[in-house]
């Protein structure tokens, strides 16, 4: 299995194929569209990420000392980016996650999507993952 940094690098390379921002977004949108919908049972307040304009749910689960996440959002771009974050962190141990640093968002040129503004709570999503493994 690839390391967290290797997975991030892999994503950066995937995005480097697109020179146009429009294509990058199309790729994220497609990921969002293809992500399996979270069953309504999981769409509870306890899994809701605060501070987002769109609703984002993040459901963590421990299996054999490893963390797995399910995610969903009612906005497709948020969902696509959440999908990438889950891809990086899924199946990792607590130690692996807490030692890691996210660099892919900035490198693929979507840095504004992680800004800690009221309009976009992806920073809170990442924050929640780190706090979860503490």
């Amino acid at each position: 299995m690839k390391t967290i940094d290797q997975t991030q690098q892999e994503i950066v390379e995937e995005f480097s194929m697109f020179s146009d921002w429009m294509d990058k977004y199309e790729y994220i949108i497609d990921m969002g569209k293809n992500l399996e919908q979270l069953p309504d049972d999981f769409k509870k307040d306890e899994f809701l990420i605060p501070g987002c304009q769109s609703r984002v749910w993040l459901v963590p689960e421990f299996r054999d000392d490893k963390v797995f996440f399910k995610t969903d959002s009612d906005a497709i771009i948020t969902k696509g980016i959440a999908c990438l974050i889950v891809r990086i962190f899924n199946g990792r141990t607590k130690e692996e996650i807490s030692k890691s640093k996210l660099f892919f968002i900035e490198k693929i040129g979507l840095v504004q999507n992680l800004s800690p503004t009221r309009a976009n709570g992806l920073a809170s999503m990442v924050d929640k993952i780190y706090r979860y493994v503490k």
């Binding site: 977004y25 906005a75 497709i76 976009n120």
Partner: peptide, 21 residues
């Protein structure tokens, strides 16, 4: 069928500032 935030995010990339929420 489309979330207002998605529309705002994409329009922003085209230089258009609208409010969503």
């Amino acid at each position: 069928g489309i979330h207002h935030e998605d529309i705002g995010t994409m329009l922003d990339k085209m230089g258009i500032a609208v409010r969503t929420g």
